Amino acid sequence: MTPEKIQLVQNSFVLVAPIADEAAEIFYNHLFEIAPELRSMFPQDMSGQKEKLMQTLSVAVNNLHRLEAVLPTLKDLGQKHVSYGVKDKHYDTVGEALLHTLKIGLGDAFTPELKEAWTDTFAAVAAT
């Protein structure tokens, strides 16, 4: 990822932070809409899960400039997800839900350049 794309993602995430609860709600609603079979992988009460999502995004976004520092954490998270039944194919669906969330949450600020930067970011994190 280029420094410019990292900066775009980090600057946009500053706009997402104040609407974190709403963003998590949009994310999971869309995820379960496009992939209802994934719902059974999650707890009935999603409040803790939504908080974890936003915390994980925050850590990843804030460390994009030094991704190697969070690689062990991301790898551990990936291993946990395997034990929950997550398959490689699910990452595309999650990426789609994330981009949808950003489009809704950021509105006109979600430019094609920002979409590309977030797509690259998600690809880098998901590859881990």
Rank of each mutant, 00 (worst) to 15 (best):
M1I: 10
T2N: 11
T2Y: 00
P3N: 10
E4C: 08
K5V: 00
Q7L: 12
V9Y: 01
Q10H: 06
N11P: 04
S12M: 10
F13H: 01
F13A: 00
V14K: 12
V14A: 15
V14P: 03
L15P: 02
V16W: 03
A17P: 00
P18N: 08
P18A: 04
A20N: 13
A20E: 15
A20Q: 11
A20H: 07
D21W: 00
A23E: 00
A24N: 03
E25N: 03
I26E: 06
I26D: 04
Y28V: 10
Y28T: 08
H30V: 00
L31C: 12
L31D: 00
F32D: 12
F32C: 05
E33G: 04
E33Y: 02
A35E: 13
A35R: 15
P36D: 14
P36W: 12
P36V: 11
R39E: 13
M41Q: 04
F42R: 07
F42V: 05
P43K: 12
P43Q: 11
P43Y: 11
D45T: 00
D45M: 05
M46E: 05
S47N: 14
S47W: 08
G48F: 10
G48Q: 14
G48C: 09
Q49I: 07
Q49P: 06
Q49R: 05
Q49H: 14
K50A: 10
K50N: 01
K50P: 15
K50H: 11
K50L: 09
E51C: 04
E51Y: 04
K52S: 11
L53M: 13
M54T: 03
M54I: 09
Q55R: 15
T56D: 09
L57K: 01
L57W: 02
L57S: 03
S58G: 15
V59E: 01
V59G: 00
A60V: 09
A60F: 13
N62A: 13
N63F: 01
N63H: 12
L64Q: 10
L64A: 09
L64D: 03
H65R: 07
H65E: 14
H65S: 14
E68T: 08
E68V: 06
A69N: 11
A69F: 09
A69G: 06
P72I: 09
L74P: 06
K75D: 09
K75R: 15
K75N: 11
D76G: 15
D76A: 15
D76W: 09
G78C: 08
Q79M: 06
K80L: 08
H81F: 07
H81Q: 12
H81G: 10
S83I: 03
G85R: 10
K87T: 01
D88K: 05
D88C: 03
D88N: 05
D88F: 06
H90L: 05
T93A: 04
E96I: 00
E96K: 13
E96Y: 01
A97C: 05
L98V: 11
L99S: 06
H100M: 07
T101L: 02
T101R: 01
L102W: 02
L102A: 03
I104V: 14
I104N: 04
G107F: 02
D108L: 11
D108C: 06
F110I: 07
F110N: 07
T111Y: 02
P112K: 02
E113V: 07
K115I: 08
E116D: 15
A117G: 01
A117H: 01
W118M: 06
T119E: 10
T119N: 14
F122Q: 00
A123E: 09
A123F: 10
V125Q: 02
V125A: 14
A126D: 09
T128L: 14
